[in-house]
Amino acid sequence: MYDAPNLEKTVDQKEFKITADNVQVFYGDTHAIKDVSVQIEDNTVTAFIGPSGCGKSTFLRCLNRMNDTIDICRVEGNILLDGENIYDKKVDPVQLRAKVGMVFQKPNPFPKSIYDNIAYGPRIHGLTRNKADLDIIVEKSLRRGAIWDEVKDRLDQPGTGLSGGQQQRLCIARAIATEPEVLLMDEPCSALDPIATAQVEELIDELRQDYSVVIVTHSMQQAARVSQKTAFFHLGNLVEYGETSQIFTNPIDPRTESYITGRIG
């Protein structure tokens, strides 16, 4: 019975997964995001870069309405996911966030077992009928999170006991377990050592096959390594958006160039 809208969507998806149109964000009186419009493609890693406080994380949090949890935050403009306005009154943020998963700056595993950490999302969203299904999802997610081999023998131990890099991959696996369509990552490697960072970056590249990944990073090298598209934010404005290779080699805006060459930031 959902055939018709699905057809429409597939047409859209080919083009853009998320379309943001004149988005404004206010924190109380502060105008944090000014008039940002951007189109994010499916099966692509899109990187948001920019100096600290430029609004890239804020904008990222708009994409799955995580800003709703902050009382003083107000969002204007339209953000369309598959052609549907996610700020529409009828949209339940809970349903939205199941489609648009998120991974945070600091690894934040729940103080539960590794298994329960992964199973949490599928359970609350009612994705499984029985334990066997759940077992399959957990294993699959952990495998896709590239952490299965490290934890398969201790699924019943607390997730908080893992190392930082493992915790972050666990959190990514946890986000994948709810079968999202878009994965938002807010500086996922900033709390990790170089080796763990490399593992996570590799993982992000693999995830691109199935998801649209949006990653906020303050590391330009990281953006260059993992992303196909890059958006540069500065003082709440989207300064430049385009192919990663183009942004890093041949930026159009002088501000982008200054940032990339290390003059601002």
Binding site: F104, F110, Y120, I124, T178
Partner: peptide
């Protein structure tokens, strides 16, 4: 961060409270 983690997965407030915060 614990709350964010749960909300980010699409949990409702009560689910977050009952299954993450209270434990």
């Amino acid at each position: 961060a614990m709350r964010d983690g749960s909300y980010g997965l699409g949990a409702t407030k009560s689910e977050t409270i009952k299954q993450v915060i209270l434990p």
